[in-house]
Simulated scan of single mutants.
Amino acid sequence: MSMPDIRQLVPHSGQMVLLDRALHADADHLCAEVRIHPASMLAGADGVGSWVGIEYMAQAIAAHAGWLALQRGEEVKVGFLLGSRKYEAKVPNFALGSVLQVHVRRVLQSENGLGAFECRIDIVDGLANAAAATVTVFQPDNVNQFLKDGNVG
């Protein structure tokens, strides 16, 4: 199945879209790709610091939520990264020229929009599990109401 352009799946715009493309998705999984190059957001002489991996994971989760919304004929909505548990990176940076695959798997989703995903980043033709974490997210039904008064429903 052909995947939509990543910009249709995430509620980010411009340079804030850090993922290059979604490779595949299903009800509980998504795999996205990131190519590290000198013009990559947050790139330095040694590449992109591995600490940025948490944002790659969060955007892949957002892309999964966006893909699911499009499957239901709904609009892509904003969500929030609540935190991560045990983010571990085996490399200090993602080197220039490397290609990453960001895998997210939904392990928990509640009716009120709270979710948890097991995530990992593989370096293509390099290190599998270069980074991993459990990431918790929240996607309220009405983001404007939530931001105004903190109501979930």
Rank of each mutant, 00 (worst) to 15 (best):
D46I: 00
G115T: 07
H103G: 03
L108F: 15
C31I: 15
E74L: 10
R120W: 14
A132P: 00
G66L: 08
N144G: 08
G126F: 09
S110T: 15
A69M: 07
G153I: 00
H103D: 12
L68H: 11
V99W: 03
H103I: 12
N93I: 00
A89W: 07
P4G: 01
V91Y: 03
R106E: 15
Q15N: 14
L82Y: 07
H12L: 11
Y56W: 11
V48R: 03
P140K: 00
H37E: 13
A22D: 03
L108W: 12
W51A: 13
W51H: 14
A25K: 02
L81A: 03
A116W: 10
G53H: 07
D20P: 05
Q15I: 10
G83F: 06
R7P: 08
P140C: 01
A69T: 08
A32T: 09
G73A: 04
H12E: 04
G47C: 07
V137S: 15
G44V: 01
H24D: 13
G153M: 09
R120A: 13
G66M: 08
S40E: 05
Y56L: 04
I121A: 05
G126A: 05
A58W: 04
I54G: 07
N93L: 00
G83D: 02
G73I: 02
L30Q: 04
S98W: 05
A39M: 12
A63M: 05
A95F: 06
T134S: 13
Q101W: 11
V78T: 12
Q15W: 06
A22M: 13
V102P: 10
G150Q: 02
D141W: 04
A45F: 10
L147T: 07
D26Y: 03
I6Y: 01
V91Q: 07
D149K: 11
H24G: 10
E88T: 13
P38V: 01
V99P: 10
N93T: 13
Q139F: 05
N151C: 11
G153P: 15
N151D: 11
A133I: 02
I61Y: 04
W51C: 10
P92G: 00
N144Y: 00
S13P: 10
G79I: 02
L96V: 07
D46G: 08
P38L: 00
D122A: 07
V102H: 09
D20R: 02
V137I: 12
V137C: 14
G153V: 09
K77V: 09
R106F: 05
A128H: 13
G73W: 05
F94C: 07
V48P: 06
I123G: 03
G150Y: 07
G126Q: 06
L19Q: 02
L68E: 12
M41I: 10
A130L: 05
S13K: 12
Q15E: 14
L9Q: 04
P11M: 01
L81C: 03
D28P: 05
A128V: 12
V52S: 08
F80I: 01
D28G: 11
A133N: 05
L147I: 12
A39L: 13
Q139I: 11
V143F: 09
D149G: 12
N129V: 06
R7A: 14
G113S: 04
V17M: 01
A27Y: 02
F138D: 00
A39T: 14
E111G: 11
A22T: 06
T136E: 14
L100I: 03
